[in-house]
Design a protein around this nucleic acid. Structure first.
Ligand SMILES: [Mn+2]
Ligand SMILES: [Mn+2]
Ligand SMILES: [Zn+2]
Ligand SMILES: [Zn+2]
Lengths: 157, 157
DNA sequence: CAACAATTGATACGGGGTATCAATAGAGGG
DNA sequence: CCCTCTATTGATACCCCGTATCAATTGTTG
């Protein structure tokens, strides 16, 4: 846990440096919200984020939570996950276009790029072209059981 | 347009018959909401649906719009589209698991099943397995320019 | 037509997100 | 270190969407 906290600080200040580099101020509220995001680890709903922020520092206003969330989203560092039902967000480490595999049991999300699988990339575009469409973009999200949760469940799955 | 209206009536009563078959009552409110859905044609937000319903029959209550929408969604005849930003819905013709190609210009949506392209289907699952996941489900939505809009735009695209 | 339950529309309510705005606190220069 | 200037903040009020409630209505079945 101490090791984890150390890494978290790293990630937070890395994100902050990015903001500072682009002329955004390094403020207490932003620091708290970023910390909450990183410590959540899992994809989070806005409600969960609000709670986490309040836990870290109850004096941060609700509006600032949404402002920081929007700021991060506009910079491509936070993405909406299209889970069924409520909308969820997740921190993004890689900046380029990518997708997510989400574990249906523990909720942990992992990023992957189609570049790693050129077949699929060209197939998705080819599929659109096959229907006469000029492909522009796509959304792909995969749900399953992650390796860790498979081990926990034992040989019956 | 007269031809279109005729087809619309067909679709609406087909949907209604499905409801009746399962013991749901054939009510005025439902008829109006279904008519609005069908006549919208495009994927629609809840707000657009409310407006369309009001246009068809202003006496239908707001609650019934959402009730009918939920009913249709529970029966798999309406699906949420994961467009960026606001949530949109679209009528579904095919009942099995399928995906959507949406035109970024005219907004028209077309359904397709991965069965038509076994490569992609197995690749998506294979991709999850390649990351150690036990695949369960996925969401794939493609955006592009539809054939009709390509023609309208002319040779410069 | 009667009887009964499903469904409806009106109403009021709740949660989530935002516009507003005076107060605060970064950042940068003297 | 202080001063200035402006980005940013927290509080408040507000709005919008969706839903719970409930008496009134309307389908359905016989
Ligand atoms: Mn991501
Ligand atoms: Mn569909
Ligand atoms: Zn897991
Ligand atoms: Zn089009």
């Amino acid at each position: 846990m101490s090791q984890n906290e150390f890494q978290s600080q790293e990630v937070v200040s890395s994100l902050e440096q990015g903001l500072a580099r682009d002329g955004f101020r390094l403020t207490r509220a932003r620091h708290v919200v970023l910390t909450a995001m990183v410590e959540l680890g899992h994809p989070f709903s806005t409600g969960e984020l609000e709670q986490a922020v309040a836990r870290v520092d109850g004096s941060v206003g609700r509006a600032s939570v949404y402002r920081t969330l929007a700021l991060m989203e506009s910079r491509g560092l936070v993405e909406k996950l299209h889970r069924s039902g409520q909308e969820h967000y997740t921190l993004c480490l890689k900046a380029e276009h990518h997708h997510h595999v989400t574990c249906v049991q523990c909720g942990r999300t992992r990023e992957f790029a189609l570049k790693d699988n050129i077949d699929l990339l060209s197939t998705v575009d080819g599929l659109a072209r096959g229907l006469g469409y000029l492909p522009r973009s796509h959304v792909l999200e995969v749900y399953g059981v992650c390796p860790a949760c498979q081990k926990l469940a034992g040989p019956h799955a």
